[in-house]
Lab assay of single mutants.
Amino acid sequence: DHDVVPEDKFQETLHLKEKEGCPQAFHALLSWLLTQDSTAILDFWRVLFKDYNLERYGRLQPILDSFPKDVDLSQPRKGRKPPAVPKALVPPPRLPTKRKASEEARAAAPAALTPRGTASPGSQLKAKPPKKPESSAEQQRLPLGNGIQTMSASVQRAVAMSSGDVPGARGAVEGILIQQVFESGGSKKCIQVGGEFYTPSKFEDSGSGKNKARSSSGPKPLVRAKGAQGAAPGGGEARLGQQGSVPAPLALPSDPQLHQKNEDECAVCRDGGELICCDGCPRAFHLACLSPPLREIPSGTWRCSSCLQATVQEVQPRAEEPRPQEPPVETPLPPGLRSAGEEVRGPPGEPLAGMDTTLVYKHLPAPPSAAPLPGLDSSALHPLLCVGPEGQQNLAPGARCGVCGDGTDVLRCTHCAAAFHWRCHFPAGTSRPGTGLRCRSCSGDVTPAPVEGVLAPSPARLAPGPAKDDTASHEPALHRDDLESLLSEHTFDGILQWAIQSMARPAAPFPS
């Protein structure tokens, strides 16, 4: 592969990997390779389809078979030569091979799209000592099968071997295949498990690692696999990028399955594409389908809103127990993405979901129960707010008499603000006073009005108090039968009158 990737590009890729991570280095090298001529790309395919690569990765054979028959990708048995050289000459001794072996032994695996480039050397060096003999053996194999790289107009793939297949390693990572398949204008990513390549439709969760975000852009890794992070704060999961590491605690105790298979379609829109997988259930989501939507993949363990709600429900009964003089119970939860139609709101002032922060849900004790107040519409209280300059209440639009249902020339009671006709409430011909108009209920007259088809109010509507207090003497005590009587009149003013009279009014101040 030294004929494909020059030394300066190799060093530039290593520097970019240390600065921005393996995914960015892979993407940059792939983009550079696509700008080369067809001879360089053909050399790339020839390096990929060597015999030892085909033996190690069985899924490469179907890719090789898909090439046109007129494309010669065979390799000479006596060494490598550029395709432009007409004579089959043995190339001179390859010093770059020693360079590659020494550099890969030092860096474990470079971040390139060629056999030198995919593992994360920093994480491997940190986690190597417990498994040094086995990992050293794996390093000797890295130059042979560490990076199976493929690129063409139909298929483009980048393979990364790992030393996680050490025997006896619980939940060992089998390997990473960062794979971009450009077929019919689409893009897919796969993962390699035990020599087999699994596409998103049959993606397997190998051991402790999972394909957290099938994305090839942005600074985030394709698999949430930063070796420096180790395990999740809650004892979460091992990262795919942690090559040759000792077994780590796999999943939280509440995880239903340690080796679950995540779905390959969004649980909201039932469509495929780039998904984020939940650590607590097999569901996966688009970032845009979450509520609120996320802009980037959160670091650490992530769970959907259903799993978060289940966790909150487990903690909430203990938080609601009476604990005198104790601060509110704080339950730190990872930043969760909410699927459509589901929402768990945190306290005000918290950062938005999706940031690399930890939301704190506070379970406050329930407030003391209070008697429910009568629910009145805002339009129902409008007549009470229509007060004239002299303190006389004006008529609201649409006000109707509670007896006849007519809204023409209605009066407004100064005591309960109900609309009424003087002739309907006082049919006996009582003279109307000039000021202080009161309806039949507030004036103490319980004589029913002779209106055909309208039920008369119940005599129990009024329960006047002592006459010594004029204001308190007109406080009506309405009961269920009074409400039914008012409802039978089918008037809004009657219902409003009952609601206003049912509310307690402050006692009249004593004259000074």
Rank of each mutant, 00 (worst) to 15 (best):
residue 242 Q to S: 07
residue 244 G to S: 04
residue 250 L to S: 10
residue 250 L to Q: 07
residue 252 L to R: 10
residue 254 S to H: 09
residue 259 H to N: 10
residue 262 N to M: 00
residue 262 N to D: 09
residue 265 E to A: 02
residue 265 E to T: 03
residue 271 D to A: 08
residue 274 E to H: 11
residue 275 L to V: 12
residue 277 C to V: 09
residue 281 C to M: 12
residue 283 R to W: 13
residue 288 A to C: 09
residue 288 A to V: 11
residue 292 P to F: 10
residue 294 L to V: 05
residue 295 R to A: 08
residue 300 G to S: 03
residue 301 T to M: 11
residue 302 W to R: 14
residue 303 R to G: 14
residue 315 V to L: 11
residue 315 V to Q: 06
residue 316 Q to W: 15
residue 317 P to S: 09
residue 317 P to T: 08
residue 318 R to M: 11
residue 318 R to P: 10
residue 319 A to R: 09
residue 319 A to D: 11
residue 320 E to T: 13
residue 321 E to K: 06
residue 322 P to S: 09
residue 322 P to C: 11
residue 322 P to K: 13
residue 325 Q to C: 09
residue 326 E to L: 10
residue 327 P to S: 10
residue 328 P to W: 14
residue 330 E to A: 11
residue 332 P to Q: 09
residue 332 P to G: 04
residue 337 L to I: 13
residue 343 E to I: 14
residue 343 E to R: 11
residue 344 V to T: 14
residue 345 R to E: 09
residue 346 G to A: 08
residue 346 G to L: 14
residue 348 P to R: 13
residue 349 G to I: 06
residue 349 G to P: 06
residue 350 E to T: 15
residue 353 A to W: 15
residue 353 A to R: 11
residue 354 G to K: 03
residue 354 G to T: 13
residue 357 T to L: 13
residue 362 K to R: 01
residue 364 L to H: 02
residue 365 P to R: 09
residue 368 P to T: 06
residue 370 A to H: 10
residue 372 P to V: 13
residue 372 P to Q: 06
residue 374 P to Q: 13
residue 375 G to V: 06
residue 377 D to F: 11
residue 377 D to N: 12
residue 377 D to K: 03
residue 379 S to G: 10
residue 380 A to C: 14
residue 382 H to K: 06
residue 385 L to N: 10
residue 387 V to A: 10
residue 387 V to R: 10
residue 390 E to L: 13
residue 391 G to I: 00
residue 391 G to W: 13
residue 392 Q to E: 05
residue 393 Q to A: 00
residue 394 N to V: 11
residue 395 L to F: 11
residue 397 P to E: 10
residue 398 G to F: 12
residue 398 G to V: 12
residue 399 A to K: 05
residue 407 G to E: 02
residue 408 T to Y: 12
residue 409 D to P: 02
residue 409 D to W: 01
residue 410 V to R: 02
residue 412 R to P: 06
residue 415 H to N: 12
residue 415 H to I: 05
residue 420 F to K: 00
residue 423 R to S: 06
residue 425 H to Q: 02
residue 429 G to L: 07
residue 431 S to A: 09
residue 431 S to W: 00
residue 432 R to Q: 04
residue 433 P to A: 07
residue 433 P to S: 11
residue 435 T to P: 10
residue 437 L to N: 11
residue 439 C to H: 00
residue 439 C to G: 02
residue 440 R to I: 08
residue 440 R to C: 09
residue 443 S to M: 09
residue 444 G to Q: 02
residue 445 D to Q: 08
residue 446 V to E: 14
residue 446 V to N: 11
residue 447 T to P: 11
residue 447 T to S: 07
residue 449 A to R: 05
residue 450 P to K: 06
residue 450 P to Q: 09
residue 452 E to I: 11
residue 456 A to H: 12
residue 459 P to Q: 07
residue 462 L to G: 11
residue 462 L to A: 14
residue 462 L to C: 09
residue 463 A to C: 10
residue 466 P to G: 14
residue 468 K to N: 10
residue 477 A to K: 02
residue 478 L to C: 03
residue 479 H to C: 00
residue 479 H to A: 09
residue 485 S to G: 06
residue 486 L to R: 03
residue 486 L to G: 03
residue 490 H to K: 02
residue 492 F to A: 04
residue 495 I to A: 01
residue 497 Q to L: 01
residue 499 A to G: 02
residue 499 A to V: 08
residue 503 M to F: 15
residue 504 A to V: 08
residue 506 P to N: 07
residue 508 A to D: 04
residue 510 F to S: 04
